[in-house]
């Protein structure tokens, strides 16, 4: 049986910008929100320069769990590693925090978690799962996925803008959408082959 190949599809047509995904992720993964650093983030942008054409877009972003992760290639300690199911993780016990991964990532998915953040996080969240600093990132909630659940951001999305599934399963909704070509990955020319796909909100309405 082939390994799973997890991916996410984000439909920009149905994201309403409620930021519930950010909140769910922050609580689930205890991210350092007090310094405005997130595993997932929703950009609130305006597109167009004429009054009658200006539209508002909410653009969720996160680690793209690339097939060819530049952050893993440059990691000197092996802290950044890839599971057989395609999820890219950081082992905070091995991470020395050189930030080469942050330099290599085209998606700005990395942020520092320092010893000061661990102290702050312990006060903020009551107790903290992590003990070591690292250059952290989204894990596709691998701990939930291992239990057969969806990532926290997907479970909480009110507009069903985020879909999570297995590209190796042809019957999976995510695999079907990606195979149809309607959803595109970001920065394909860089060669990282991200596994977060976006359905554009512009093509349908323009």
């Amino acid at each position: 049986m082939a390994n799973k190949h997890y991916a996410m599809v984000i439909d920009l047509n149905t994201c309403v910008g409620c930021n519930a995904c950010m909140a769910a992720c922050a609580i689930e993964n205890q991210t350092p929100v007090w310094k405005n650093e997130w595993r997932t983030y929703v950009h609130d942008t305006e597109i167009g320069d004429r009054d009658d054409q200006v539209r508002r877009r909410f653009f969720p972003r996160l680690c793209n769990h690339c097939d060819n992760p530049a952050c893993m290639t440059v990691c000197p300690t092996g802290a950044t590693h890839k599971l057989d199911n395609g999820i890219v993780l950081v082992n905070d016990e091995r991470c020395m925090g050189c930030r080469a991964c942050a330099m290599a990532c085209p998606y700005d998915a990395r942020y520092d978690v320092t010893y000061a953040d661990i102290e702050e996080g312990t006060n903020f969240y009551g107790s903290l799962q992590r003990k070591h600093p690292s250059v952290d990132k989204c894990s596709f909630c691998a701990h939930l996925v291992a239990k057969g659940e969806k990532p926290a951001c997907v479970k909480t999305c009110v507009g069903s803008a985020r879909l999570f599934g297995d590209l190796n399963n042809p019957n999976d909704e995510v695999a079907k959408i990606v195979a149809s070509g309607v959803a595109k990955s970001l920065l394909p020319h860089v060669g990282t082959r991200g596994n977060v796909y976006y359905i554009s909100d512009l093509e349908r309405t323009s």
Binding site: T73, V74, C75, P76, T77, G78, A79, E93, R94, C95, M96, G97, C98, R99, A100, D112, V113, T114, Y115, H132, P133, S134, V135
Partner: peptide, 25 residues
């Protein structure tokens, strides 16, 4: 560095076997 103790992983020459693509290694 964020974690000075973890630098031991990059000082260990055997790390070349686990991270051969990393130029920092």
């Amino acid at each position: 560095l964020l974690d000075h103790i973890a630098v031991i992983h990059v000082l260990n020459p055997l790390g070349l076997l686990t991270s051969p693509e990393s130029w920092i290694m």
